[in-house]
Computed example of a mutant assay.
Amino acid sequence: MRFDIITLFPELFAPFLASGVTRRAYSSDQVAVRLWNPRDYAQGNYRRVDDRPFGGGPGMVMMIEPLQACLDAIRADRAEDPAEQVPLVLFSPIGRKLDHPAVERWAQSPGAILLCGRYEGIDQRFIDTHVNAQISLGDFVLSGGEIAAMALLDAVTRLQPGVLNDEGSHQLDSFNPSLNGLLDCPHYTRPEVWQGQEVPPVLMSGHHAQIERWRRDQSLEITARHRPDLLAQARDSGHLTRKDEAVLAKIADGL
């Protein structure tokens, strides 16, 4: 799997690629990451990559020529068959919001070229010609696409075999199919008592069936309180049991 990142600020990625549990995947090229700066492909003494927008208005717009030259270099370096080229992804407010099912699909893919916009945006002609998909992290605006690119990379990389210390760890994450798309339950560790607050006794019981039921009930309650939309999706998909519904009925009485 390989991700090529087009960014005017490649230095932002250095600590990200060298830190945390996912660094093993990047250092071993299990998830290969290549950084490409359009400024390296710009012409003139000033290596200009942006210009004022036609029609006036504030800010600057990223120019086509440096982006095109940069993309051509990436495609050549990847030596792809034209019929099997990986998609070019732009992080944009109009993109589809990134969610767990999308992350799982990307985790099974050969990778992509990630385009991190800056300033007021990118010349629309480049987008119309080359961009295959657009992704948004949510209904807010960032200074550039770099943070969004890191978010996608991190989410995809941690799903790769051998990246996490415990292979089953991500199976219990919020939104995971093993939780039927619900939020994860609370977690506890030592000490058993902290400032008068005790770990729930069931977790100390050693009774695995009761522990699993407690965790499921907690997941249902947290989702009902904080993300009822996810609960509705789980119900519509037929993922809730009669026992789940009975638990939810009691929770609803207390809300």
Rank of each mutant, 00 (worst) to 15 (best):
Y46Q: 14
P10A: 03
V49Y: 00
A18V: 05
G44M: 04
I74K: 10
R24Y: 12
L71N: 07
F9H: 13
D99Y: 03
A14M: 06
P82K: 02
E65N: 10
S28E: 15
V103I: 15
D72T: 15
T22C: 15
V33A: 13
C70D: 02
P10G: 01
P82T: 03
V61I: 15
R75M: 13
Q43C: 11
A83E: 13
V33H: 14
R34P: 01
A79E: 15
F9Q: 14
L8D: 04
M62W: 03
F16E: 12
L8T: 03
E80F: 06
L8Y: 01
H100V: 03
R96N: 09
G57M: 00
G44S: 05
P38I: 04
R47G: 10
V21D: 04
A76R: 12
Q43M: 13
G59D: 12
Y26W: 15
A18M: 08
G20C: 11
R34A: 13
C70P: 02
W106G: 04
S92D: 15
Q43L: 15
I64P: 06
E11L: 12
L98Y: 06
S19I: 05
R23V: 08
R47A: 10
M63G: 01
P53D: 03
P15V: 06
D50M: 05
V31T: 11
D29F: 07
D50Q: 04
F54P: 01
A32P: 00
R75Y: 14
P101K: 01
P38R: 04
F91C: 11
P93Y: 11
L67V: 04
P82Q: 01
E84G: 09
P15M: 11
V89S: 09
V86K: 03
I74W: 10
L17Q: 09
V33C: 14
P82Y: 04
F9M: 13
R78T: 05
L90N: 13
R48I: 03
S92L: 13
A18C: 12
L88V: 07
Q68P: 08
A14W: 06
L8Q: 04
G57N: 04
G20E: 07
